[in-house]
Design a protein around this nucleic acid. Structure first.
Lengths: 150, 150
DNA sequence: ATTATTCCCTATCAATAAAATAGATATAGT
DNA sequence: ACTATATCTATTTTATTGATAGGGAATAAT
């Protein structure tokens, strides 16, 4: 199990977004450059986040993106779902043809189900506000640590 | 997050293996046919499980595969690792070039770390013996349920 | 009105990984 | 010798991920 680049970029973008005072926008271009994320790729991601209601946007001069809601109300499950679709998937389910569905091992299904629940439980209790705080605190710890050595 | 076909086949194969009395072998061919798994693909999987010490094998007439250890001692983490490599992966880590390693968001790293721990914790407490028991009990429940309708 | 700036949309490409297949070799029992 | 089994290496096929391309459409400033 690993986080896709797309999801990673999306999370980082939102953490970045959370730093701006409510109501003020930021631009894709800056976000992409400052964080080393391919701009065109990032556009797609932000668009999806916007369509999911997590971001809002304004076009034209002085426009840009901003959070659509308070960061306390945005859980990482929701973010990841907006970017990648279902965060977890029951085993056997594979697209289209539902009927019958390849009756698979109940034991394996159960194992996957329990794992999925564990994942969602973690993701559900981390909000964007938590992530942004963690990011900031970690940056501060780093800064203090560096000061010992100068 | 979803289970790869390879991992699913591997788990099902081991659950199948666990049904045989200690010391007796089963053949790839039967396993593949009875469970609807592509035989050649299954060969690769069983070989990896063997190389990981989870299965043993005997070649030639009357040969086949058998469990390499008691199923109580085989955790699903170990199974999945044998089949797919690391079950979880820290974010940012992407193969080769270790030095520097693209310093990524500490908040995202932490989120991924907590999720990974949750996953491994579930996988760690399910042994092959548990899976085999679950499979059997589920089959029994199903049988009883069907009997109501005949 | 014109222009510059920004997001918006659709399509396509490239790289990688997953899934499956193929074919030849080694080993053991009869 | 013959057959049934696993073993090994390579190749093909298909799907997914990651990234790029090129305008289009809305908005604000002039």
């Amino acid at each position: 199990m690993r986080l896709s680049k797309k999801a990673e970029y999306g999370l980082r973008a939102l953490i970045y977004a959370a730093r701006f005072p409510e109501g003020t926008t930021f631009q894709i271009k800056d976000l992409a450059e400052k964080n080393g994320i391919p701009k065109k790729f990032l556009e797609l991601i932000l668009l999806e986040l916007k369509n999911a209601g997590i971001l809002r946007s304004r076009r034209g001069v002085g426009g840009g993106y901003l959070l659509g809601r308070r960061p306390e109300t945005i859980r990482s499950t929701e973010i990841l779902r907006a970017i990648e679709g279902p965060v977890t998937q029951p085993v056997g389910r594979r697209e289209k043809g539902e009927p019958g569905e390849e009756e698979v091992s109940p034991a394996v299904s159960r194992l996957v189900k329990e794992t999925s629940e564990a994942i969602e439980s973690v993701l559900d209790r981390w909000t964007l506000a938590d992530l942004a705080r963690e990011e900031q605190e970690s940056a501060e710890r780093k800064r203090r640590h560096v000061m010992y050595f100068i």
